[in-house]
Design a binder for these strands. Structure first.
Lengths: 227, 227
DNA sequence: ATGGACATGTCAGCAATATGACAGTCCATC
DNA sequence: GATGGACTGTCATATTGCTGACATGTCCAT
C-alpha cells in the first residue's frame, strides 16, 4: 500500500470536510505528525495548551486523577476524533491527562495556525462549534448516567457504546478487538474492577457476550446491551 | 457590589464586549426581551433549538429528568450567563429543561441572527469559544465531583460555589438571599433531600453557617467550605 | 521454559447513603 | 387568624457496591 501522506490523513476528518484545497494545503504545512505508543502521555494537567490534536489511528483516553490516587476516565477516543481542544477554547493549560491506550498516530497543529484558519473559514468555525457541541452533549450524557444509573447499567451501556463505536458487525453479532482491561472499564464507568468482572461474567453467563483479554464478542444485536 | 473574585469575572465576562457600536445596534434590533416568573419553563427537551438566551436578572436552572421521575440539575445560572447555546452548536433540539428559579429577565436572539453576527465578527466568535470552553470545564468538574467526592463533600463544595457566585461579602462573612430549598440542593449535588438537611445542620452545629428558608449566612471565610 | 508482572475470579464484610415514614413548621391566601 | 400545601427535621431500615484479601490465570522477556 502506498504510504499515506499527511494531507491524506487530514482529509479524512469530518471536521475538515468541505474546506477548499488551498486551505487544506495550508493546514498541512502547519501540521506535524507523530506516532505514540501505548501508555505514552500526550499531555498532563497544567501543561501549556498550545496544540490541538487530530487522532488518526489508535485510541486515546482523557482522564483525571484524584488526590488519593483514584482515576476517572472522561473519554475514550478513536480515529477521527479531536483532543486538546481546550487550546482553541481560551484555556492556556490542560485540565486532563491524555494517554495512549492503543498505539496511535496523531496530527498536531499549533493553536495559532488553527485559529488563523478559523478566521479565514467560517465553514471551519461552524464545524468546530458542531464538534464542541457534540463533546458537550457526550459529557452531559455521562453525568446523567452517573446520577441515574446503577453500576451494572453503567457498565452495560458503556459496552453498548464501545461495541457500537469500535466494533465490527459480523454475521452473528459484533466483534471488538482488542478489548479493554476490567480496570479500564471500571475507570470509564466509575465502578470497581471487581464489579466490572462480575457484570461481564453475568453477561457471558446469559450468553449475551463472549470475551477474553483480547476480544469482546457480542452475540446478536446491540440492543441486548440496553441500560 | 460584592468584592469581585476571578471566578466572578469569568462567570460574568461579557461575551459581547469589544463589539463595535454598529454591531451592538444590529444585535439589539434582533433581540427580544422577556420576563419570566418562578417555575416557568423556558424550554423542554426536544423543543426546537432556535434561540440563544442571555440571562439579565434572576436565576435559571438547567436540568434533566430520569424515566422514573428523578431529577438532576446540571447548572444553576445567574445574571450574565448564556443558555440555550446548543442552538449555535449545531443541534436542532434541546436536551435539557430550562426553568426559572428566581424571577428572571431574559434576552432572546434567533440563532441565525447570532450566527450572522459571528460571521462578521471573529472577536465574537472567539468570545463564544471561550464561553463554551468554560462551560465544558464546569461540567467536567461536575463529573469529577460526582466520582471523587462523597455526598457531604459535594454538598459543602456546592455551597462554596453558591456563596462565591451569588453571595455578598459582609464584615462577618457572606450572605446569600434567597436560599434554595433542600430538595433543590439535593438535585444539584446528586444526593437525597434528607442528606442535605443533615449536612446543613451539621455545618450550623459547627457554627460555620447559619441558615433559614430565606437566607444562608456563612460566618467567616469561604475556605471553611472546603471539599 | 521459567519467573515475574499484571490481569482475572471470587468471596466476605462493611460503610455510605438512599428510602420511607411521619411529625413539626412555615407561610401564602382566603 | 384559620387552613392547606410545601418544606424541614429525624429516625429506622435496606441495599448497593466498594474494599481488602487471596488464589488462579495469562503473557512476555529473558
Amino acid at each position: 500500500m502506498a504510504e499515506k501522506t499527511k494531507l491524506w490523513y487530514l482529509q479524512n476528518f469530518n471536521m475538515l470536510e468541505g474546506m477548499s484545497p488551498k486551505m487544506m494545503k495550508e493546514l498541512e504545512q502547519n501540521t506535524s505528525m507523530q506516532s505514540n505508543s501505548k501508555k505514552e502521555i500526550i499531555y498532563f494537567p497544567e501543561d501549556a495548551s498550545n496544540t490541538i490534536y487530530f487522532l488518526k489511528m489508535g485510541k486515546i483516553k482523557i482522564y483525571r486523577l484524584s488526590e488519593d490516587g483514584k482515576t476517572t476516565t472522561l473519554q475514550l477516543l478513536g480515529p477521527g476524533e479531536i483532543f486538546g481542544e481546550s487550546a482553541i477554547l481560551g484555556q492556556d493549560t490542560h485540565d486532563n491527562i491524555a494517554e495512549v491506550v492503543e498505539d496511535a498516530v496523531v496530527c498536531a497543529i499549533d493553536k495559532r495556525d488553527f485559529q488563523d484558519l478559523m478566521e479565514k473559514s467560517s465553514k471551519l468555525t461552524m464545524s468546530v462549534n458542531k464538534f464542541i457541541g457534540w463533546r458537550l452533549r457526550k459529557i452531559q450524557a455521562h453525568v446523567e448516567d452517573l446520577v441515574f444509573k446503577n453500576a451494572s447499567q453503567r457498565i452495560t451501556s458503556f459496552l453498548h457504546r464501545y461495541v457500537e463505536t469500535f466494533g465490527k458487525k459480523m454475521v452473528d453479532g459484533w466483534m471488538v478487538r482488542p478489548f479493554l482491561t476490567h480496570q479500564e472499564i471500571a475507570d470509564l464507568t466509575a465502578t470497581a474492577r471487581q464489579t466490572v468482572n462480575q457484570v461481564l461474567n453475568e453477561l457471558a453467563e446469559r450468553d449475551v457476550i463472549k470475551f477474553s483479554r483480547r476480544f469482546l464478542h457480542l452475540k446478536g444485536d446491540l440492543d441486548q446491551l440496553e441500560s
